[in-house]
């Protein structure tokens, strides 16, 4: 007897106790539960022909779907986390079809920035990494993971994404509160007890954004800055993706430095397309793109790193003024801005 046979012999109560996510099987298929003491098999056999016909099913199909559901959820739960040490970008060709001479390895814990004028191909480079391009995108680039070609089915794995993305175009659209949203996200990772995570995420999101919000704030009423802050904190603590791609979030009004530290602290590779000097200098390298190709890779110099301290001060001052503005205070612009 295999495991699915056993599962359908369980009573609904035992099934729900043992596999809390199985509740979703009933919910998503519109199956009302009246008596939890009968077995799944008996339950399915008790459903009437007309009821099932309305769904386009019969008892046998539904039992099959139940087994598939349980198998799939088990697989998602047990699938091991990615073990990624590094990724490699192998050059393709630029927009003028000239070869792109590049072989760049990026390791876990690195922050890499991508700079270049609008239209130069920053987003395209991020998309190539997201897609684990194998010379099958317009740029003909190839992406290696741990030095080899990643298995093709990684592209299709919706449950375990190698890459998490954050971009300025992204908005929250779900009609729920912040707390409900995080719980839903945790559930989608099949994490049952998400209370601590939820608190952690809301706490850190508030550290990133000047404007406070809490669990009960409706998700879609968050400001641009609050949304970005929540997306960063959520990615840091709930996403299993080892690679984070950030596309131009400089205007979001969040503490960018803290945001990056939060992500890097969770052992991720972070790639940022940006025009922002503060962000650009936080990376250890920056990729310069031009005309659709990688032109060169610059290592951040020690001089630049020193400059970063000064830039951070200026940024902190600006943030202080922003905060004063928000609170309806007068701006006391003193000497601190003078060099």
């Amino acid at each position: 007897m295999n495991e699915s046979d056993l599962l359908e012999e369980l009573t609904i109560k035992d099934l729900l106790d043992k596999y809390p996510y199985s509740k979703e099987f009933f919910n998503i298929n519109g199956l009302p539960i009246d008596d939890v003491k009968i077995s799944i098999r008996d339950y399915i056999n008790s459903l009437g022909y007309v009821f099932l016909e309305d769904m386009g099913l019969n008892q046998e199909d539904l039992l099959k779907r139940f087994r598939s559901f349980m198998d799939r959820m088990k697989a998602i739960r047990e699938e091991p986390a990615f073990n990624i040490r590094d990724i490699t970008i192998l050059g393709g060709r630029n927009k003028s079809e000239k070869p792109e001479e590049i072989d760049l390895k990026i390791c876990i814990g690195e922050i890499i920035c991508i700079v270049g004028p609008t239209g130069s191909g920053k987003s395209r480079l991020l998309a190539d990494i997201e897609w684990m391009a194998q010379r099958d995108t317009p740029t003909r680039r190839q992406i290696l993971i741990n030095g080899s070609v990643p298995p093709r089915d990684w592209r299709f794995s919706v449950e375990h994404k190698l890459v998490a993305q954050l971009s300025q175009n992204m908005n929250f659209v779900m009609d729920v509160s912040v707390g409900e949203f995080i719980t839903l996200h945790a559930q989608s990772r099949l994490i049952d007890n998400s209370e601590i995570k939820t608190q952690e995420i809301v706490f850190h999101a508030n550290q990133l954004s000047g404007e406070r919000f809490d669990m009960n704030t409706p998700l879609t009423s968050l400001s641009g800055g609050q949304s970005r802050a929540l997306m960063v904190a959520d990615t840091a603590f709930l996403s299993t993706s080892p690679i984070v791609l950030i596309d131009e979030i400089e205007n979001a009004g969040i503490n960018r430095k803290k945001a990056l530290e939060l992500l890097i602290g969770q052992n991720k590779i972070v790639l940022i397309a940006t025009h922002d000097p503060l962000l650009a200098l936080m990376g250890n390298k920056r990729i310069v793109v031009k005309n659709g190709g990688i032109k060169k890779v610059i290592n951040t110099t020690s001089n630049e790193k020193k400059g970063l301290l000064r830039l951070t001060e200026i940024d902190n001052i600006l943030m202080k003024y922003r905060e004063s503005l928000r609170n309806g205070q007068l701006l006391e612009i003193g000497d601190e801005l003078l060099c």
Partner: peptide
């Protein structure tokens, strides 16, 4: 146009 988390959910 939606957040990564919502995509995953």
């Amino acid at each position: 146009i939606v957040s990564q988390a919502e995509r995953e959910i």
